[in-house]
Amino acid sequence: MYCYSLVVFSLGIRRSILCPAFPDLVVDIVQSIVEIVSCGDSQDPQLFERFMEYQVLAEFVRVLRICTDTGIQAPFLQYLSIFIQNIENYCFSNDHINNIIAHPFNFGCGDLDPYYISFLRAVSSKVNIGIISILVKVHGVRYCSFLPVTLYSAALKFSQRSERMIQAAVRAITLNLYKVSDDLVLQFLSTPPVSDYFSNLVWRLKEQCSHLDGHVHALKERFTDHGWKELLLEADKIVDEIYYLKDIISVGESCLSEAVALSLVNFLIFPILGRLLKTQQSDVSCLLPNFFCSYIYSYFSQG
């Protein structure tokens, strides 16, 4: 029953793509396919075989290439995120998931961005040694189209976004990939220019410390409730960044820990200590960076 329904809907999506007058029909069919795969796998063991046989993922890619309306792409990505959580590893053996990730979406229009980053997060949660082995066995090592490479590169494009949901998703995606513990993936992550991401994190932390320093200095001159709230907000951002860096180190991969540690020392701790050595003042602007250097050292030294 489930296999028959899958065949019907897979044929339906091929026809609906050719009917631009009914864009909602595409989304409805994709939703139906996702529901069939999600609910029918436990009922019909041949479901995924039929899914692969009828190249349903390839049809999903065709949908994105033809339907450029973000009003269709957003719910489409939402259903794909659900779908990804229910597929087997061998569904990653072709480049269809990779092609969806690399699709040139028109970001910044409507609500597409959070749906896309949620899709990336769903994919990252499935990446493991088993999938890496399948990809290498089928395709060999091609960094330009290697799924973890495409996924990581896509996620980093959102690393400077200020929305909390997107920030949390980017961190979850990167941590999921750091935990794969595959030599090929780690080599990619720890090699410039990709490894510059770690130094960028520390540079951002340094800027946040500078902003916090400015807030403290301003409050010293004139205390206001608004200024106090701004100070607490900046402090929360710094603590959040430190927790993320600690999570990266806690993964336990020496190449990642070394990259984070070197960035902290070279771009945050040494510059701040050098600044302290050059000045004879003991005002807040000197004491606050010194405090954070001590805090960071004590926090990470706890293991």
Rank of each mutant, 00 (worst) to 15 (best):
G252R: 09
S257F: 06
S254R: 05
D196F: 00
P271W: 14
N200M: 14
S190L: 01
S250G: 11
L186A: 04
K206P: 04
D183I: 13
S254V: 02
K246L: 02
L184K: 15
L256Y: 14
L184H: 02
Y243N: 13
L212V: 00
R222S: 10
V194G: 08
V194L: 06
K220G: 03
D247C: 12
I249T: 07
D196R: 15
F188E: 02
E207L: 13
D196M: 06
F267W: 06
D213R: 13
H217Q: 09
L245T: 05
Y243T: 03
V185W: 05
N200E: 12
K206W: 15
G227A: 07
F223Y: 07
E241M: 15
L212K: 01
L231Q: 15
I248A: 11
H211K: 11
L186C: 02
D183F: 14
V216P: 00
R222H: 11
L186E: 06
V251C: 05
N200S: 12
G252A: 03
L189V: 09
C209V: 07
L231W: 12
D247G: 03
H217I: 06
V216Y: 11
A261L: 04
L232I: 07
S199C: 05
H217S: 10
S199I: 05
R222P: 01
T191W: 04
N200I: 15
L219W: 04
L184C: 12
D240C: 09
L184T: 15
L233I: 11
R204H: 04
I248K: 06
D240S: 12
L205W: 01
V239D: 10
K206R: 14
K237Q: 14
W228Y: 12
L233R: 09
V265T: 02
A261N: 13
N200P: 00
L264A: 07
W228T: 08
V251T: 09
V202D: 14
H226Y: 14
K229E: 15
L262K: 14
I272N: 04
V202A: 07
D225L: 03
P192E: 03
L212D: 00
T191H: 08
F270T: 12
V216K: 00
Q187C: 11
D183C: 08
G252E: 06
E221I: 13
F270I: 13
L256E: 00
I238W: 15
L232V: 02
P271I: 05
P193I: 01
N266G: 09
R222K: 12
K229G: 10
H215W: 03
E253L: 03
H211A: 04
E207Y: 10
D213T: 15
K246I: 01
I269H: 01
V251F: 05
T191F: 11
L245H: 02
G214C: 11
T224Y: 00
I248E: 13
K237T: 08
P271F: 14
D236P: 05
L268Q: 06
K246G: 07
V194Y: 10
L201Q: 12
S263P: 04
F198V: 03
A235L: 10
S195L: 10
K206S: 15
W228I: 08
L205Y: 01
D183N: 08
Q208L: 02
H215K: 10
S250R: 01
N266K: 10
H217L: 14
T191N: 14
L262A: 07
V216H: 01
V216M: 10
V202L: 09
D196K: 04
T191Y: 05
K229L: 15
E253W: 00
Q208A: 09
L201W: 02
K206F: 15
K229Q: 15
D236G: 13
